Amino acid sequence: MKKITLGILAHVDAGKTTLSENILYRCRVINSPGRVDNRDTFLDTDPVERLRGITVYSKEARFTYEGVSYTLIDTPGHSDFYKDLERSLYALDAAILVISASEGVQAHTRLLYSACKKLSIPVYIYINKMDMPGVEKSQIMTDIRHSLMIDNPVDMSLDYMEEFSVVSEEYIEKYLDGRFSEDDVADIIEDGLAVPVYAGSALKGLGVEELLHGLSLYSRPHDITGADSIVIRIKRSSTMERMTYVKVLKGSVEVRGEYFGEKISQIRQYNGERYECVDRLEAGDTGYLLGPEKPLAGMCIRDGIEDMYGISMATPVISVAVTSKDTDDILLMRYLKEYEVEEPSLNVSKGSNNKDIIIDVMGKMYLDVLKGKFKERFHIELEYSKIRVL
C-alpha cells in the first residue's frame, strides 16, 4: 500500500482545520466534522487552541482512501508558530495549500508556498469558501498565478490533461499522439511544473472528494533529505514521558532496537489524542519513539550515521527578558531549556550582562501562549520586560 504523509497549510482563517475535519469525516475517522467555533475539532485539542480558535501545535491523524495510507499533519496557520510548521515540512510527501476564496492569496500564503517550493514539496491547492457571495473562480486563479508566481495552475474541474501537457514540447507530443497518461501528470506535479487547483467549500464538503481522489492518483513518496530517518519534533506525553517524533525513510525502526545508541522501549502512532502501540516503523511511516533521550529536532540517521538535516528559514522577531516571582532564575532557566527542546520557536539565552534570561520568539501571540503553558506545566507565572524588536 502506498504511504503518503500529507500536510495541510494555510493562513489563519482560510479553513484549514475545517478541511481537515471534513477529510477525516469522509474517511470515517470521525463520526461528524467538528467546528472551530464549537471547540470540538479532532486535532485542535490543546486548551489554548480551543480558546483562541487556531492551530498552535502540529498534530497528526491517520486514514486510508482509495488504497492509499495517509498520515495527515494539520499545521499551525499563525506566523508566530511557523517554526513548528517548518519542521513538519521535511516529513511531507505532498502539501494541501488552502486559500480562502473571499480573502485570496495572503502574505503568509506566499511564505508557505515558497517554503514548499524550496523543499520541492508537491503542492495541491484547495480554494475554500467558494460558496461565499461575490466569489469568482477566474479572479482567484489569476491571483494564484500572479501572487504565487505559478506559471501553470491547473483547474482540476475542467478537462485538465491538455493543460498539464503544455508544460513541455515532449509532453505536448505525447498528448497529441494519445500517449499522455496519468503517470505523466504525476511526474509533472512531482517536478513542480504545474500545480493542481481544486475548489469548493470545506464546511459543506464540496470539492473534498475530488481533492482526495487527485491526491490518491498523483501523490508519491517524496524525500529531499537522503536520510534513513529524521527527527521531526520532541514532545511530552500526558504523563510527561519524552517522545521523539520520527519519519522513517529507509529501512525500519523497531521496539527493543536502538535509536541514536539508546534503546526504544515503545513506539506509538497517534490519531488525534488516541494512539496505538506498534512493534516497528517501516519506510514511509511516522511515529513517536519512547526511550531515547538524545535525539533533537533536526537530527537524522543517514547511512547509519548520526547527522543533521534542514536549515531554518525563519528567524525570531521579538526578544524579551523573562522572570518569575514563583521561582529563582536557576530553576526558571532549567524549565525554559527543557521546554526549548520541544519548541523550535523558542530560543533561550543569557543576556549580555550574563544576568537576564532572554528569549527570542516569532511574535507576541507566542509569548501569550508560552505564559499559559508554563502556568499549566510548571505552575509558575512568567513576566516579560525589555521587549525588543529584532
Rank of each mutant, 00 (worst) to 15 (best):
L370V: 01
K250Q: 10
E49L: 00
D131I: 11
L332M: 07
R179A: 07
R268Q: 10
L281I: 04
L193A: 10
F180K: 08
L212Y: 06
P316E: 01
S201N: 05
E169Q: 15
Y113Q: 15
E209D: 13
V197Q: 00
S201L: 05
E340N: 10
M130E: 09
A194C: 09
L217H: 06
T142Q: 14
A95C: 08
Y259G: 13
V253N: 11
D191N: 15
E306L: 10
T286K: 02
K337H: 05
L92R: 09
P153T: 01
K373W: 13
R87C: 02
L119N: 12
E293S: 07
E163M: 09
I127Y: 04
R274M: 14
Y366L: 06
E343H: 10
E136M: 06
A186N: 12
A94D: 10
S312C: 05
M141H: 02
V36S: 09
T17G: 08
C300M: 08
T142C: 03
S32D: 11
E170Y: 11
D307E: 14
S79R: 15
I189Y: 04
V197G: 00
A314N: 13
G67V: 05
C27R: 02
I4Y: 01
E342C: 12
E170Q: 13
E21D: 09
V166T: 06
D285S: 07
V322N: 04
K204M: 14
R39V: 11
T225R: 05
G34F: 01
V320C: 12
P344G: 10
P221F: 03
I127D: 10
P295Y: 00
P295E: 00
V389R: 12
T45D: 10
E262P: 14
T286V: 14
T327W: 08
G67E: 03
T75E: 08
N31T: 14
T55F: 03
S352K: 09
I121K: 00
P47G: 02
S201C: 01
E209P: 07
Y259D: 13
M149P: 06
L370K: 03
D328Q: 05
Q139C: 07
R39P: 13
I189D: 09
E60A: 06
F260W: 09
G192I: 02
F260Y: 10
Y171T: 15
T327A: 02
M149Q: 14
